[in-house]
Design a protein around this nucleic acid. Structure first.
Lengths: 341, 341
DNA sequence: TTTAGCACTCGATCATCCGGAGTGCTAACA
DNA sequence: TGTTAGCACTCCGGATGATCGAGTGCTAAA
């Protein structure tokens, strides 16, 4: 357990380093208002903190920087839940009172404002439509052999896919089938559709509809949803502003990672409720070893819909990002609920 | 007019500089197979070429690099229409024989392969649905006051938008209206819909449908298409590999530009048929003054659908990019035609 | 007209040299 | 005993200067 004095020194080092990105010396610390002892004492304490693993020295005769453990301790115990800047809060509120009627637009905008206010890269996963319920199914023929299947969920999400109409299947039989599917499947969660289809509807379909086997293949095609929620990033170029990525090579690794949506999804997806902070090597991926990821889930009616998060250097303004994410998840959830009633 | 010898020297300088990214000296040029004169002669000629504005010298006692004019001359007169690498051609062909049934997927993949093969950033605009014709209109109610309008075009493009149902408008009157709209508007190009609506349908609607004024507002909302085609980029991080962007600041300017979709659209949109090459300052935007943009339009049944292009440093492998774009636009147009019949 | 030779220029690289910031240790002090 | 002032030492970073090599421009010879 750290003494109160050690804690205030650790806090000082972390906060100074976060805002100035340079190793923090004993004099700098002792000059802070919340530290009353002299530089020499600070030196002794810093030496102890280094031994305990909370601080690191880039080289002898340089100041100290926080280790991953140091950041962790700071996030877990030392961070005061700083109030958001009024202007930031205002920006968030203004966003959600403005007219955003499309889901995609809402999320894109949220990502945008998040990256704008933090100067880090923001990433939003989802929303996961998988749990949504089928509202309506429709097939619109384009040509003899082509059609568009449209699937609307109770949340107003529209999923479309182009399907090939098997030979020998008539328009009227498709219509018949769609009607049947609508009456039997409406209200079910999307991930149950196929299951239900096979278990309960095969008999009925084979009785009512001609060319049953071909149709089944077509339905199968129709209900193959893309399970992966979409990924929205914003402010990817912000990494280029961070001094830790002044070296193009390092920046490149990170930017390339951001272009691979599956990796990003894996990195950010989080099942835990609430805000999650992963610092440095706590992320498994080596490329983000000197990055931190802060993520939160947004919900609708208690159902977790997706993840919203920030990627930045380990030297990140945790206080600000966390309080911003707290506000944003609540407001986003609210907004989505209002949108979907 | 340049002499044959001057041309071969200019070609040599451009090609050497393209592949090595360093000022080209007289010795290097005279060692090439297509230049038979000595280094000293080359020096004299290069001096002339500089005076004519085709070459530049970063500083005295450095080699020469092509000026924008030099690249332009090279592209217009000196480039031999080099055969594509067999492996590249194969990759393109493989892409289009693979199963891609969604429009968006097709385009995303095309962009991907383009950036992969060139190591530059690829950008695809469109497809422009504006000229497409209405196939089918559908409104699916979600709640009392909310609905999703779905608009399918003859090319199978699906456009959706969430609409608010005005108070006092019944479900049945909406249904009635949609039927009327479908029968009257189907087959029309999207950009004529509104016009036609106001000119010919107001009377009929007011006769057949209750609460006519509210409905009109709603229809208006429905037919407000996003005119801007979507933008797909791929390989944005490739700029970070180019030696001209070793400096993070320069890279940042470009990457930020790539994040602004409207600027990108403006930069790439091209009405001219065929392949267009814009070198350096020929682009109006200052941020891309040392970049070149090569773009081409892809078509369907002769109708220009959208633009496909490459953004890279002025020192770009024009031959390769141009031949690649030639193949790709043809294949993409073919593929889309097959897709839409 | 072309080429060989030569002096000259200039950037890149490397070693060297401070200056400053910061530490660790010791001794004095409360 | 804990705290502080003082001091020698370390190390980084920027400035300076020497050297090297690539490349040019000019001149004179072929």
């Amino acid at each position: 357990m750290l003494s109160e004095r050690q804690e205030s020194i650790l806090r000082a080092v972390v906060e100074e380093y976060i805002s100035h990105a340079e190793p923090v010396g004993s004099r700098t610390v002792s000059k802070r208002d919340d530290v009353t002892v002299s530089a020499a004492t600070v030196r002794n304490e810093m030496s102890d903190l280094e031994e305990l693993g909370f601080l690191e020295q880039p080289h002898t005769s340089a100041g100290r920087i926080p280790s991953h453990l140091g950041y962790r301790y700071y996030v877990d115990h030392l961070m005061s839940p700083k109030q958001l800047e009024r202007s930031d809060l205002l920006a968030v509120r203004r966003l959600f009172t403005s007219h955003m009627d499309a889901l995609e637009q809402t999320i894109q905008q949220t990502a945008f404002i998040l990256s704008k206010l933090t100067n880090y890269t923001s990433i939003i996963l989802g929303p996961e439509v998988f749990e949504n319920r089928l509202k309506h199914l429709q097939v619109i023929p384009l040509t003899e052999r082509m059609a568009v299947a449209i699937l609307v969920t109770d949340t107003g999400h529209v999923d479309q896919r182009r399907i090939t109409v098997p030979e020998g299947v008539s328009l009227s039989s498709i219509e018949q089938m769609v009607n049947l599917l609508n009456s039997k499947l409406a209200g079910l969660p999307l991930h149950e559709l196929k299951q239900r289809l096979y278990r309960e509807l095969t008999d009925e379909l084979s009785r009512h509809v001609e060319n049953y086997e071909y149709l089944m293949a077509m339905i199968d095609q129709m209900l193959d949803l893309d399970q992966e929620g979409r990924i929205f990033t914003s402010g990817a170029t912000n990494v280029l502003s961070q001094p830790e990525f002044r070296d193009v090579e390092k920046a490149k690794v990170l930017m390339e990672l951001l272009e691979q949506s599956d990796t990003v999804a894996r990195l950010f997806s989080s099942d835990k409720e609430g805000i999650q902070v992963r610092i440095g090597q706590e992320n498994r991926l080596e490329a983000v070893n000197n990055c931190s990821i802060i993520s939160a889930t947004y919900t609708i009616d208690g159902r977790s819909l997706g993840t919203i998060g920030i990627l930045g250097p380990t030297r990140m303004d945790y206080q600000k990002v966390i309080s911003l994410l707290e506000v944003l998840t609540v407001d986003l959830s609210d907004h989505l609920r209002r949108l979907y009633r």
